[in-house]
Amino acid sequence: MKSINNELSVHSGPILISGPCSAETEEQLITTSIQLAETKKADVLRAGIWKPRTKPGSFEGVGAEGLKWLAEAKKETGLKTAVEVANVKHVYSALKHNVDILWLGARTTVNPFAVQEIADALEGVDITVLLKNPVNPDIDLWEGGIERILKAGVKNVGAIHRGFSKYGESNFRNPPQWQIPIELKQRFPELTLICDPSHICGKRDTLLEISQEAIDLNFDGLMIESHITPDKAWSDAKQQITPFELKKLIEQIVIRESKLPKKGKDTELDNLRQKINILDSELIEILSQRMKTTDLIGEYKKQNRIKILQSNRWEEIVEKSVIEGQSKGLTKDFIVKFLSDIHLESITRQNNIMNSNKWLDKILVKR
């Protein structure tokens, strides 16, 4: 694999892939592409040709006819083109129309059989392939998809982070769970990583916030949906913006230095990092002491035949900690996530204690 930043970007700064969620008409697609080209911000024109919808009956794309429009838009503007493919037939149609970039959507990446079939169809083809993360937060599944495409001999492979599905209420359409793409980057240091704020947010008003966070986390680029008349879009209207609004959004993003000063040059930063190291060590020591106390509680529960999970006690801890944490500048979400991980580890440790020598406990009971 090689970094494909230079393959996609025609200007300095983050890669920008943009265009309508769906190609609706030839006029709509070409007009959008012309306006995008005029912004001088976009590198790649994206458009959904085949749209995998959650339920039948909604608009599912114009099909292969839209590839002709995409080719015309490329001829008109010089922008590279990108489409989503979900099966081998899509791959062959896209290649026939000289599409530059293929991406596998979240519903495809989640299926190793589908990814392998696409990988087989791409064997020996010189093209850029991007894989969106699977719908569920499974980094191994995402990594596996990337490896399947690489093993087919495709060298220009990248990833798109579009957030992960979550049951229940959320401020996001697909919560980002940033730790997952960060870990993927650690596994593939040369991987080009694109963020898709449109699908993370599901609405326009938080696109800038997520875009800025992605760039701050050293993502290589953004995929943001744009449309000449977003409110009239045939799919995902709420998350699309006009090319003019896109230009304004990109201009508001602050690009920070990716390289740190040489060691010793920035004393203030070195001092702050040293402080973080000390605090981290203290945190680990405190967590170690907490787990030792958890083990003692597990022994007590075992001896006195008390159930491991005490829901009322857990609720009390969370409620108290949230109030205390918020008073000290911590968010509720962070506190709950942090405590949940500690709670799960505590339960695991207590379960190991409670169920050790189980056969011996049965003998003692019979006596």
Rank of each mutant, 00 (worst) to 15 (best):
L260E: 13
L279Q: 07
I278L: 15
E315M: 09
K302L: 09
P261H: 06
D295I: 01
I306D: 02
E282F: 03
Q274S: 12
L309N: 11
Q252L: 10
G298V: 10
R313A: 10
L309K: 12
L309E: 13
W314D: 04
R256K: 15
M291K: 13
D266P: 07
S258F: 07
L249K: 05
E315L: 12
Y300N: 08
R273T: 12
I250K: 10
E257C: 05
K248T: 14
W314Y: 09
T294W: 03
L296P: 01
V254N: 04
I278Q: 14
L296E: 13
Y300T: 03
W314L: 08
I278R: 14
S311L: 01
D280P: 01
V254S: 00
K275F: 15
Q303W: 00
N304W: 06
T294P: 03
K248M: 10
K307C: 08
L296Y: 06
R313L: 12
K262G: 08
D280L: 14
E251R: 01
R290F: 05
E257R: 06
L309F: 12
M291A: 05
Q310L: 02
L260A: 15
I286F: 10
E282D: 11
N277I: 06
E285T: 03
K263T: 15
Q289S: 00
S281V: 00
I255A: 00
E285V: 02
Q289E: 02
K259N: 00
K259P: 09
K275A: 12
K265W: 11
S258M: 02
D270E: 15
P261W: 10
R313W: 04
L246C: 09
E282K: 12
I276M: 15
K248L: 14
L272E: 10
D280Q: 15
K248A: 14
W314E: 01
T294G: 04
R256S: 01
L246D: 03
I284H: 08
I278T: 14
N277M: 08
D266Y: 08
L287E: 13
I250V: 12
N277A: 11
L296M: 08
E245W: 02
I306A: 05
Q252P: 04
K307T: 11
I284L: 11
R273D: 01
N304Y: 13
N271I: 12
I286V: 14
K259T: 01
I308N: 13
I255Q: 05
L269Y: 02
K275R: 15
K275Y: 15
E268I: 07
L260D: 14
Y300K: 04
K263Q: 15
K265T: 11
N312Y: 11
M291I: 09
S281P: 04
R305G: 05
T294L: 01
E299R: 06
D270I: 11
N312H: 06
V254P: 01
K275G: 12
I253C: 03
D295F: 06
